[in-house]
Structures are given as structure tokens and as C-alpha cells.
């Protein structure tokens, strides 16, 4: 698996888009994998009764997917130091979650990537990920 090194990362470069189909299976399996049994993440009847249109992603999964988005691009050598997410509209089952990202800054060894995860209703999560890369060998 390819891994990026410090010298390969440029401020302003853009990460490839990642699009995830939020099937009910994705919503439910990630909720359970994050040990979150809140019914709105797996029981569509309860979700609707509470005013949601369907089951939706839990926040622990949003954090996990943001991390995956960046490490898919950065490779196994990168180390994630910080994830700051501002939460927006729900990501409902049946929707599609698309991530875009841009490298915006570097401070010492730490690079910051701005990430935006959009669904059809708007921004589901926006924020920054700070990470380090292996030095060029």
C-alpha cells in the first residue's frame, strides 16, 4: 500500500473525492461496530417516530469515516493527531456521503487537511484533520 511522505505533500493540493453509499447496512453495521445501540441508528420506525426521515449515521461513525477518508489517501504511514468536526445535517440511510479535502497548512511536522463531508441535504460534517507523514526516505 502506497504511503505518502512529507515531501510529497503540498499545501493547496486536493484529496481525491470519496463517495460512500449510505445503505441501511452501512448505517447499522457502523453503529453496532461503534457500540452505539441508540435505536435511531438501526430502527427506522423509531427514527421516523422521532421526526427523522430514516435511520442516520452516528457521530462515532462520522469520526471514523473522516479518519478513513484521509488515511485512504495518506497511506498507512500517516499518523492522525487530531480530528475536529463541526456537525451538520444528518446523513440518512439511502443518501450518499461524499468527502472532499484540501491540505491547508503545515506547522512543524503536522499537516492540516480541511475536510468536508456532504450529503444531499448539505454539509454533514466539516472540519480539520491534523496528521503527520513519514519523512522522505
Amino acid at each position: 500500500m502506497r504511503t505518502l511522505t512529507e515531501d510529497q505533500v503540498e499545501i493547496g493540493s486536493v484529496l481525491p473525492e470519496l463517495s460512500i453509499d449510505l445503505t441501511p447496512t452501512v448505517v447499522v453495521s457502523t453503529a453496532l461496530a461503534t457500540m452505539d445501540f441508540t435505536p435511531v441508528h438501526h430502527d427506522v420506525g423509531i427514527a421516523r417516530a422521532q421526526g427523522s426521515k430514516d435511520i442516520f449515521l452516528n457521530i462515532l461513525t462520522t469520526m471514523g469515516l473522516v479518519e478513513r477518508y484521509v488515511t485512504d489517501w495518506a497511506g498507512p504511514g500517516a499518523v492522525i493527531r487530531r480530528i475536529n468536526v463541526k456537525l451538520g445535517v444528518p446523513a440518512y440511510a439511502g443518501d450518499r456521503l461524499s468527502f472532499n479535502g484540501t491540505i491547508v497548512s503545515r506547522e512543524a511536522a503536522e499537516f492540516t487537511v480541511e475536510v468536508r463531508g456532504k450529503v444531499s441535504l448539505g454539509d454533514h460534517a466539516t472540519g480539520t484533520i491534523t496528521l503527520t507523514f513519514p519523512e522522505a526516505s
Binding site: A33, T34, G64, E67, R68, G75, I80
Partner: peptide, 28 residues
């Protein structure tokens, strides 16, 4: 967790550590 997230990064299990974003899962 990795399966559910669709995360194929081998680093975690190779190094015997948890994905950072999994932190909250342990104490749910």
C-alpha cells in the same frame, strides 16, 4: 470496526494499535 468503516488501512493491526477515531468506542 475497520470492516464496517470500509477502512483497509493495515497499519493498525500490523502495529497492534487501535484506529485513533475508535477511541470513544472502547468506553461506550
Amino acid at each position: 470496526w475497520l470492516d464496517a468503516m470500509g477502512d483497509t488501512n493495515p497499519a493498525y493491526l500490523d502495529q497492534g494499535v487501535a484506529p485513533p477515531a475508535m477511541i470513544q468506542v472502547w468506553t461506550m
